Simulated assay, not measured.
Amino acid sequence: MATERNVSPWVKMALELGPVIAFFIGYSRWKDDIFTIWGTDYSGFVVVTAAFIPLMVVCSLILWGLTGKLSRMQGLTLVLVVVFGGLTVWLNDETFFKMKPTIIYALFAAILGIGLLRGHSYVALLMGDIMPMEHTGWMVLTRRMAWFFAGLAVANEAIWRLMSTDAWVNFKTFGLPVALFAFFMLQGRLVSRHAIGDKAE
C-alpha cells in the first residue's frame, strides 16, 4: 500500500485551488465572448470549462505524484469534473457543470447520513488517527457535516437556477471555500470538548 508523503501545504493548496482560480480568471476574461470552433458557437463559459478539465487532471496527477495518494473526496471530485465538464463541452450546455457541486455535496451528505443511520462516523474513519476524539464527538461532528453538505447542495442548486452565471461563478470560487473554512473553524469547541489522549490540546 502506498504511503502518503509530506508536501508543502502551500504547494498542496496551489494544486487544489489553482484550477478553480484559473477558471474564475478565464471566465472573467472571456465570459462575454463567443468562440466558433468547427462551425459551432461556444460561450466563454464552455470554452473555459474545456480548459479547466485537463488542468484539473494534471494538477491532480501532480498532487498524487508528490503525496503518493489522492483522498476519496479528491478522486470523486476529479471524476465528476471530467464527466460533467465533458458533458458541458460535448452538449454545449452550461447546466451540467453547474450541477456538479450539487451532486458532490449531496453525495457527501448521503454517505455521511447512511453512516449515521448505521451508528458509524465515516469522518472518524478518515480522520481518527490525526484527531483522536470520543465516539460521541465524532457522531455530532458527522451529523453537522451531513447537514452542512446538504445545505451546500441546496444553495448551489438555488444559485445556478435562480441567479446569473456571474453569481454562480463567484459563489463557487469564493463562497464555497469560505463556507467550508468557516464551518470547520466553528467546530473547534466540539473537537476540544471531546478530544482524547495526548492531542487534546
Rank of each mutant, 00 (worst) to 15 (best):
L70W: 07
N156F: 02
A110K: 03
F35N: 13
T77G: 15
D41Y: 01
A195D: 10
L176D: 01
R5W: 00
V58P: 07
T49I: 14
K199C: 01
I37E: 09
R118D: 08
V82M: 15
I34F: 04
S8F: 06
M73G: 04
M99K: 09
A200P: 02
V11E: 01
S8R: 03
L107F: 13
M56V: 04
M163E: 03
M127R: 07
L190V: 11
G197I: 07
R143C: 07
I53A: 10
W160Y: 15
I53C: 08
A124E: 15
M56K: 11
A106S: 09
A50D: 10
G175V: 12
M127G: 00
L125G: 11
G85L: 06
A2K: 11
F52N: 12
D93G: 07
K98S: 14
A14D: 05
F148G: 07
A150F: 15
T67D: 00
K172I: 02
Y122C: 00
A155S: 05
I21A: 15
I130M: 14
F181E: 00
F24R: 05
V20M: 15
A2H: 08
V81I: 15
W30S: 09
W168L: 13
F184M: 04
G18M: 08
L107V: 15
L61D: 01
F96D: 07
L107G: 05
E157L: 15
G65C: 03
M139S: 04
I37P: 09
S43Q: 07
M133S: 12
W90F: 14
F24W: 14
G137H: 04
T40I: 12
K98W: 08
G39A: 11
V178G: 06
R189P: 02
L116E: 01
K69V: 04
T95K: 10
D129T: 12
I196A: 01
